[in-house]
Nucleic acid binder design. Structure first.
Lengths: 218, 218
DNA sequence: CATCGAATGTAGCGTTGCTAGATTTACTAA
DNA sequence: TTAGTAAATCTAGCAACGCTACATTCGATG
């Protein structure tokens, strides 16, 4: 078997030149690829941001693919290159929402030294839901939701729920159930408030009663 | 001023005949009008029923006006004569849902003589939500919802919530708040279960813990 | 039987999510 | 520089949607 050197026999100088040239083009190609990736991410963020803004101001029904493509000054198919469907866009927004509420709950939980941690987290949760109702809505209205302890569950979701889990960790033999119940109560309050079933006026009393229930020892 | 008798002077016999004739036609017209009203109500019920069936089997996105008009073998405009819009149909279904859950809760509350009433009502609530997920979904996903203690609130809604209110009536100074919290917890559990955030497997434990929280004296 | 209003259907408008194919743009290589 | 190629982007259109103006049919009435 003949070597490559033998098969294509060039003077060393030319080989070296070709080497540097290829290195140069490779580096340039890398830089270009990186820039393209950055552009993609920027556009992706623009789409998500526009969707959130329109949803909060005019409701999710006004978040159409055409409207979004207008907002970012691209044609519709570009959106489908980023997210496979309209639902894909909503999913991306929802995941961003889970990340944000997770961080907000973590912050509330860690910041409070003395005083009631449960109360701080509850307040942070309801504050999040009240200040971004459309975002909160899409986080829970998505039918494509996977089971929460599934392997396919986005880590942002798990992180958010883990903040509630840690609140009651080890306080009871049923801390898992307690956490679920706490979450359900918060979600119920948030949702019934958002859909105007609960008047906002009594919100403080509701939180106070809720905290009383979930503060141990009973 | 001349009397009518004077103006249109007919022999008494003719007047009597006209009288009976008009009575007969009036009665016939009444019967016809009643039949038309019945037909209307039957069709209205058919529409609502078809909407519920399709929603439970294939989801609300498959409940289109064309599909419904197919199901009842009428053209689309007929649906718009009954309900002003697609949303009107969903609202009618939702109200039917509130009526049914109200009756189910009342039944659970009154049937239980000894044993925990709170537990019976909680179980009935979650059973309703689990057995008709699409119905439960539309009851709370409607954005046109009016405030719950508003004058425009449908009586079916108020009746349903009143069943929860009476559970804690007079048991505490804050029985109103307690009721709201109880409802929120149930709604949160129902919703997080429906959207697959909670596994159904631990539902019994959740209910047990919930009942423990809301059973007095503490 | 003729009439006239109510009931119902036909057909179409504007908008939606989505996509196939044309076209332009941006990079590579001679 | 220039030709060629692959990626990026747009144009244009489909089917289905909610909804409605208008034509048509039907049925009660005089």
């Amino acid at each position: 078997m003949r070597s490559i050197r033998e098969k294509f026999h060039h003077p060393p100088l030319i080989l070296a030149a070709l080497y540097f040239l290829s290195m140069a083009t490779t580096l340039a190609a890398n830089r270009i690829a990186e820039r393209k990736l950055r552009d993609r991410q920027v556009r992706r963020a623009q789409i998500i941001s526009a969707a959130r803004r329109i949803a909060e101001l005019e409701g999710w029904s006004n978040v159409t693919v055409r409207r979004l493509s207008d907002e970012i000054s691209y044609s519709q198919p570009v959106l489908y290159a980023h997210f496979g469907s309209r639902e894909g866009i909503l999913t991306a927004v929802a995941i961003e929402g889970f990340q944000e509420i997770g961080l907000a709950l973590e912050k509330a939980r860690k910041r409070v030294k003395r005083g009631n941690t449960v109360e701080a987290v509850a307040a942070a949760y309801l504050e999040f839901a009240a200040s971004s109702p459309a975002l909160y809505e899409v986080m829970f209205s998505l039918s494509l939701s996977v089971p929460f302890d599934d392997a396919a569950t986005p880590p942002e979701m798990r992180f958010a729920f883990s903040q509630l889990l840690e609140l009651f960790q080890g306080q009871s033999s049923k801390s898992g159930i307690i956490s679920e119940l706490f979450w359900a109560s918060l979600h119920g309050i948030a949702e019934l408030t958002r859909t105007k079933r609960f008047p906002r006026s009594r919100q403080k009393e509701r939180v106070r009663a809720l905290v009383e229930f979930f503060t141990f020892p009973r």
